[in-house]
Design a protein around this nucleic acid. Structure first.
Length: 274
DNA sequence: CTGCCCCCCTGCCTGC
DNA sequence: TGCAGGCAGGGGGGCA
């Protein structure tokens, strides 16, 4: 999402912001439209699943897509196509008009998404960002860190990896996929994973994320890239959503199972994940 | 602090 | 055709 939006946002001024309702998951920030209008986007960053638009006003706009959120760019050339402004859709909650003709529309049927505005120099202390663990693709995420962080924990590894304080930015799909690649059962207690297996988990997580980003993400129902195109990593899922299908691990006779852990679906192969 | 459970909300699909 | 129930890429908050 960040990669798709950066070219149309970075260095550009926000000409207008239209709020079609006062809240998403939480109330939108006080006077949000006024605080954004006329601001230039210096840089579009990301931390965990939060998009961070650093503004010339000294504030940063924080955006989270929740489960069903989409951000759509129209009115400018993206790749080979000029995407005309589409007809307004139900659940278009926030619309930005950008210098250069781009329109950025935030659409979110379930409204689990969120936006906030906060002083850039206090960004690290923002309540949504303060407790986050290391970035899985960054230097702070490695075997030693993981061993230390998971040591003694009784919770299943699946739940631990979904805990954003342990590692930031992993969701249900990518945790399932990474555990399968590492040969670790999602049911296994986090504190009781052999060091050798934990060592494979770090590269497994990195590989899954890198491949998924390269594929433009995973489109199941709602997700679209910034240009409206579908992501296609869903075609590379090895376990997610594949209950009853044969395990794709070469030589593995297993069948993918679905179980529920802390209220979320887990998909795994009981044969090759231990 | 840990682990668990509920909740926020809409839409879509299945089965009866 | 209608309706109930289950499910969905997240994550805050309350509870024991």
């Amino acid at each position: 999402m960040r990669r798709g939006l950066a070219p149309v946002l970075e260095g550009r001024t926000i000409f207008a912001a239209r709020l079609n309702r006062p809240d998403l998951r939480w109330p939108l920030p006080e006077r949000m439209a006024e605080r954004l209008t006329g601001a230039r986007v210096l840089r579009l960053g990301r931390r965990s699943k939060y998009l961070l638009a650093e503004l010339s006003t000294g504030e940063t706009l924080i955006v989270h897509l929740g489960m069903s959120g989409r951000i759509l760019v129209s009115g400018v050339a993206l790749g080979h196509f000029v995407h005309d402004h589409p007809a307004p859709q139900k659940h278009d909650h926030v619309v930005f008009e950008i210098e250069g003709g781009a329109r950025i529309t935030f659409n979110d049927p379930r409204r689990f998404g969120a936006m906030d505005l906060t002083a850039t120099d206090a960004l690290d202390r923002h309540r949504l960002l303060a407790g986050l663990g290391p970035e899985p693709l960054g230097n702070g995420f490695h075997e030693l860190y993981l061993t230390g962080r998971l040591g003694g924990r009784q919770t299943p590894i699946k739940a631990a990896l979904l805990d954003q304080r342990v590692v930031a930015g992993l969701g249900n799909i990518y945790v399932c996929e990474a555990l399968h690649r590492a040969g670790i059962s999602p049911l296994r207690q986090a504190g009781r994973i052999a060091a050798a297996r934990l060592a494979t988990l770090v590269p497994a997580i990195r590989t899954v994320l890198t491949e998924a980003i390269e594929a433009g993400g995973s489109s199941l129902r709602d997700y679209r890239q910034a240009d409206g195109e579908l992501g296609y990593f869903q075609h590379n899922f090895r376990v997610y959503g594949r209950e009853g299908k044969p395990c794709p691990t070469p030589g593995c006779p297993g069948t993918i199972r679905r179980v529920v852990q802390s209220g979320r679906s887990t998909f795994y192969c009981p044969q090759c994940q231990r």
